[in-house]
Structure formats: C-alpha cells, structure tokens
Amino acid sequence: MINTVMDVLSWILLCSGGVFVLIGGIGALRLPNFYTRLHAASLTETMATILIFVGMILQAGFSLEALKLAVIMLFLLLTAPTASYALANAALQSGMRPKAESAKVESPNAQTGNSES
C-alpha cells in the first residue's frame, strides 16, 4: 500500500519536473532580453532540479543511490545561484543595463541614481 503511494507520488513529481524543464527551455527562447532570460534559466535550475531529484530519490528508496542523488541535488542547488550571479554581474559590469523601471531605493542612505533604463 505505502509502496504504491510512494510510486504514484514520485511519478507525479517526475512528470511535473519534466514539464518545468520544458517551460524553462521555452522561456529561455521566448523572453525578450538577457536579464529576463535569467529568470527562465533559474526556473529549470531550481524547481525542475528539485522535482526530478526528489522523484528519483523516492524511486531509489533507502539506499546509497538516494544519498548520492541528494548530494548531487544539494550541489546543483548551491552552485546554480552562484553561476547566475556571476553571469548577471559580468553582464552588468560590461555596461549592459537592464531594461526595467528605474531602481527603487529602499533606504535613505543608499546611493541614488543607479540604472535609468
């Protein structure tokens, strides 16, 4: 009984993971400029990774494979934001300004006049 429930749950996770991977790929192609495409990439890098790996961990059960999968998932989740930040910051430093509404300064002592679209 509990096995069937686990099986069904893991398949649901894997299927929705596949859907999210595809949506991220479509987004990377559809969105209009670099900074918005970053969001599509982070969609597949976090959500799809979590869904697919958790689904596979449920399939693997309590074993060495499950542990390895968990370590790979943790590694991917810890490094994905670092890579995105390095990429976005490199683009920003090269003088590519994001097309966006002007920066809202949250705190009075922050510097103003950053990035006008």
Partner: peptide, 17 residues
C-alpha cells in the same frame, strides 16, 4: 507568465541596503 501568450512581464529593479 512564460506560458501566457501575451508575456505579461514588467521587469523592475529593486535596490536595498
């Protein structure tokens, strides 16, 4: 947002300390 045909994005930059 990605799947909707009209792509309703409004990019915004937020800066905070």
């Amino acid at each position: 947002i990605i799947l909707s045909p009209s792509l309703p994005i409004q990019p915004e930059l937020v800066e905070f300390t």
